[in-house]
Amino acid sequence: MDVITLGETMAMFSPDTMGKMRYASQYSRKFAGAETNVAIGLQRLGFQTGWISRVGDDEFGKGLIHFVRGEGVDVSQVQADSRAPTGLYFKEIRHEQDVYVYYYRAGSAASRMSADDIQETYIAQTKYLHITGITPALSESCFQAVMQALRFAEKYRVPVVFDPNIREKLWDSKQQARERLGQIAKQADIILPGVSEARYLFGDASLEQYAQRFMEKGASTVILKEGSKGAHFFTKDSHGFVPSYPVERVVDPIGAGDGFAAGLIAGLLEGLPLEERVAKGNAIGAIVTTVNGDVEGLPDADELARFTQVKKGDVDR
Rank of each mutant, 00 (worst) to 15 (best):
G227Q: 12
F233K: 02
Q212P: 05
A219T: 06
R249C: 03
F241C: 15
A205P: 01
G203D: 01
M215A: 06
A219F: 03
G230A: 07
P246E: 13
H232W: 10
F202T: 02
G203K: 02
D204G: 03
E226T: 14
Y200F: 08
Y200H: 05
Y245F: 15
M215H: 08
F202E: 04
T235W: 02
A205V: 00
L224E: 01
S220M: 08
V195D: 08
A205H: 02
G227V: 04
E248Y: 09
H239E: 15
G203H: 07
L201W: 09
R249L: 01
F233Y: 11
E216R: 03
S206M: 00
T235S: 13
V222Q: 00
R199N: 05
S220L: 11
D204E: 04
E197W: 05
F241H: 13
G203A: 02
F202K: 06
G227L: 05
D237G: 09
M215Y: 01
G240C: 11
Y200S: 08
E208G: 05
R213L: 07
E208Q: 08
L207E: 12
R249A: 07
I223H: 01
S244A: 13
Y245A: 04
A231D: 12
Y210F: 07
A231V: 00
G240A: 15
L207Y: 10
G240R: 05
T221C: 12
S238W: 07
P243K: 15
E216L: 01
F241K: 12
Q209Y: 01
T221E: 15
S244R: 13
R213M: 01
A205W: 01
Q212F: 09
A231T: 00
H232S: 09
S238P: 11
R213D: 02
S206K: 01
A205L: 10
S238E: 15
G227D: 06
V222M: 02
K229E: 10
E208A: 04
V222K: 00
Q212R: 02
A219E: 03
E197G: 14
S196R: 04
K225V: 02
G203P: 11
